[in-house]
Design a protein around this nucleic acid. Structure first.
Lengths: 343, 343
DNA sequence: AAAATCATTGCAATCGGTTGCATTCGTATG
DNA sequence: CATACGAATGCAACCGATTGCAATGATTTT
């Protein structure tokens, strides 16, 4: 008989082995209390009868779940990130790394409106730790949540009074570099597109302002526009911006998706890119290099970032104290896009 | 005292209420066995003491988890889909719909190499049901898995001897429409890019062949190329194709990402799109409409598809028998891209 | 007033494992 | 030979809820 009756409880296995549940459990867990002979016998039986232990029961008994929740933060109500390839790649990197550590990934993308409400959720309760992808505009709620003793780590940018552990790119430096690049090509009137309520974008904007200041250019508030991440609405914001009659020859966008939307909108309005206006992105998503013209952008090391997020939350789960990490980012100059203005 | 001692077990709540655990449980679950007076008293106490019930314990007791696993299928080893925005949007749709039904989402993207090995995983064991996003090239493994009694549903295309429930787009029709569109614009030599081992793509290719046949055009095997989903490698495949010296004036790509990679590659090789060669995509991801030139493609109704996937697996979980669903897809013609060939 | 009925509530088993402690058995030691 | 000791195994409590059934008390019926 190659495939005997399938056993699916420890008790069943113990019965056919003629031992107690305790012995069977120890044998499977390779406990030193059990003799090698018994161990091998029981393990062989388990194999034969295709026994696989009920992880739910064990996790419950051991008061752990080997589950980490990953929460997509959305700009309510635009749901921006869930459609941003950058965060998808990040999610993939996090999933890979969690799998390596034998952790599973519980995915959530409900907006964090109330820390307490989240507390009643399986997402928070069943998980050993939390990873937030992005802060959206909800720094305060995240801070509230940090008061619970649940291990958590957030991908994002620096924010006032922060109590949670942060992992993020060097947004200030990225914003600085990309702006400096545009200025070095002779662009004079550089605009910035993005919502400053988002801490990451705020930091990029600060880098942008520093670059202007270093170059002796005075920042003008008319050159900043709150462009949403969502493409359809981004289009309106861009047209709105153009109609405001500003004089501009370059635009620093807070993300690649935003940049692609901006470029398409400019082109459809008959504006040459980068001839009339140069446009830069942020993130270096895979599609950025295939855009026409190719996009100059700031690359974030996604694989590495995902790994850092996971290692950080796991070390917290182990009870160690985890510290913030800044992942360095790198300017990615693509041929024609950053070319000198034709004017 | 506004915030008395926090209670976190049912026993604790029962103690301060002066009742038994059973009564407390019934009160919280609004059982008709309990008098309204007691019910209200206990619920009030639960509120005051910030009691929130341990879902893990309940799920364990009730032998259910309210968890559905979503598995990203990858083309080993290219890991294609995990970077395809189409599947991210699908994931978002699935997540939304699961949340509506009070189900959580366990995410996995390990390749399904062995149905049995997966069986020992939390991903499969803890979940009440499984949703596979795509089949990759692993129809056989999925079929093996279908032999277990676990509720499961797969997004993909028809495949021989299929035993699992299938939800998918009308790939044949989509492939047909987009090819017919190109032919109607006067294109004569239409190529097809995609891997036929993937059932969805195979169906699109069949639609492509039917369109050719209806138009009286003879399909040529030299006009089909296995282009991987991954962008970097796609580029090489495209250049390879061009260097094979084929005569071609249009390319039907099996996905938008592939189409964008193809267009960029053609352009960098000095070939005008759509002047010399027209290119079409599939999926209608958000970025498709922002490409330059805008991409003619086949739109799949992602929100609706995600909903169907969820409803299907949930009905299986409830013990009902679920049937396959085909979600209709729709040709999305964009201005310049499908324009008549200049030749 | 005794019996029957009904509305509430409590007891205890259960889900499937893990683990501290007691017990058993075999062997080495005094 | 009796005692002690160590290795191997079993007993039973435990994780935190749910639920069938018994028990209690109050109310109605005869």
């Amino acid at each position: 008989m190659k495939s005997p009756k399938v056993i699916n409880t420890l008790q069943g296995l113990a019965d056919i082995a003629g031992v107690s549940r305790a012995t069977a459990s120890r044998a499977l867990n390779d406990s030193p209390l059990i003799s090698d002979k018994t161990k091998q016998r029981i393990q062989a039986l388990a194999e034969q009868h295709r026994y696989s232990l009920n992880t739910k029961a064990r996790d419950f008994r051991l008061q752990r779940s080997n589950l980490v929740s990953v929460i997509f933060m959305l700009d309510i109500p635009s749901k921006q990130h869930m459609s941003d390839p950058f965060f998808l790649e990040m999610l993939g990197a996090v999933a890979d790394c969690l799998a390596e550590h034998d952790y599973d990934l519980l995915l959530a993308h409900a907006p964090v409106t109330d820390a307490l409400a989240l507390g009643r959720t399986r997402v928070l309760q069943q998980a050993d730790g939390l990873i937030f992808l992005g802060q959206g505009t909800q720094h305060r709620e995240l801070n509230d949540l940090a008061l619970s003793e649940k291990p958590m780590v957030v991908w994002g940018g620096q924010a006032a009074g922060r109590r949670y552990t942060l992992v993020g790119g060097d947004n200030h430096q990225g914003g600085f570099q990309v702006t400096q690049h545009l200025l070095s090509l002779g662009r004079k009137k550089v605009a910035f597109f993005g919502n400053l309520l988002n801490p990451e974008i705020r930091a990029r904007h600060q880098g942008y302002e520093r670059a202007l200041s270093v170059a002796g250019v005075e920042p003008m508030s008319s050159l900043r526009k709150d462009v949403p991440f969502q493409m359809q609405e981004a289009r309106h914001a861009v047209i709105d911006f153009l109609h405001s009659g500003v004089d501009v020859d370059a635009i620093v966008c807070a993300s690649d998706v935003m940049a692609l939307a901006t470029i398409a909108t400019l082109q459809s309005e008959g504006i040459a890119v980068p001839g009339d206006i140069a446009v830069t992105g942020y993130d270096d998503i895979a599609l950025a290099s295939y855009s026409n013209p190719p996009l100059t952008t700031v690359r974030q090391n996604i694989q590495w970032s995902g790994r850092v997020l996971v290692e950080t939350v796991l070390s917290q789960i182990r009870g160690e104290t985890a510290s913030d990490t800044t992942v360095s980012s790198q300017l990615q100059v693509r041929e024609s896009c950053g070319a000198a203005a034709s004017t």
